[in-house]
């Protein structure tokens, strides 16, 4: 059916046609390779298709921003990655980027300018909020009406960049009952994966950070833990499994919730 055709243009394709997108969707490594987060990528692309935003992706030309390398101390590798990405981005004359990964968001927005990559960068929660504000996304399917949802602030969105409101505005649009954890917003507790912890075992301690955070999320009685970050998604999902609550409590990304409420998931 022609209705169901999803367009995912790459920059190379558009450039060949002499066209330019309004915005580049930076998918990120987790969004490209991680089975769970690929679902988020797909949900977001469906939303972009539905509302008719003229976007494009880099496809195989995209590579790691270098965020985990820089945070693990390997500045050389970070800068190698950053410079080659900047060459590609500037080559396509990109001016505006959206990403569903707060780590990519932070790096592209704050760290690429020093190396010659200056773009307007948005987290996907900001675009979703914008679409809701403009009435392009109504999300009034009622799938989440009255459901208890808690939002887990990603450190790289929250404290790192002061984005606290956009994700909450998105959740409010779902007509759900937003319940906050004891530690939220500026005081939000890390999931345990930032600073390249995602790629190593935790140091010796008496508890895993994601368990501490999951317990706090479960204490709210929410049936959905909403997040806007691939690493938080992994850590919180593992936490929920560890607590054997995966039958009752879901960890979902903001884009997935909106796509489901729009009945396009």
């Amino acid at each position: 059916m022609s209705d169901n055709i999803i367009h995912i243009p790459t920059m190379a394709e558009l450039a060949a046609k002499g066209e330019k997108p309004d915005i580049l969707f930076w998918v990120g490594c987790a969004g490209s390779f991680d089975d769970r987060y690929k679902k988020v990528t797909k949900a977001f692309v469906k939303i972009l298709n539905k509302v008719g935003i003229k976007f494009a992706v880099l496809g195989e030309e995209e590579t790691c921003t270098g965020d985990p390398a820089r945070r693990a101390g390997n500045e050389f590798l970070f800068q190698m990655q950053a410079m080659s990405n900047i060459q590609v981005l500037n080559g396509y004359e990109i001016t505006k980027i959206v990403t569903a990964c707060p780590h990519c968001f932070n790096t592209l927005k704050n760290e690429y300018p020093a190396l010659g990559g200056k773009y307007e960068v948005m987290h996907h929660s900001a675009i979703l909020q914008q679409l809701i504000d403009e009435g392009k996304v109504k999300a009034e399917g009622g799938a989440f009406k009255g459901k208890k949802i808690t939002f887990h602030d990603s450190c790289y969105l929250g404290r790192a960049n002061n984005v606290y409101e956009a994700p909450r505005k998105v959740l409010e649009a779902l007509d759900a009952e937003l319940v906050e954890m004891k530690r939220c917003k500026t005081k939000g507790l890390c999931c345990g994966a930032g600073g390249a912890q995602m790629f190593k075992e935790p140091e010796q301690g008496n508890k895993d950070i994601n368990i501490e955070r999951t317990e706090e999320a479960l204490d709210t009685g929410a049936k959905i833990i909403a997040s806007g970050c691939p690493f938080c998604m992994t850590m919180m999902s593992d936490g929920v499994k560890n607590k054997e609550k995966e039958g009752e409590v879901e960890v979902r990304d903001l884009a997935e919730l909106i796509a489901e409420a729009e009945d396009i998931l």
Partner: peptide, 14 residues
Amino acid sequence: DRFSWANDLKTEAE
């Protein structure tokens, strides 16, 4: 494999 999600999605949608 970086871009294979796109083909998956197109197939799923169709």
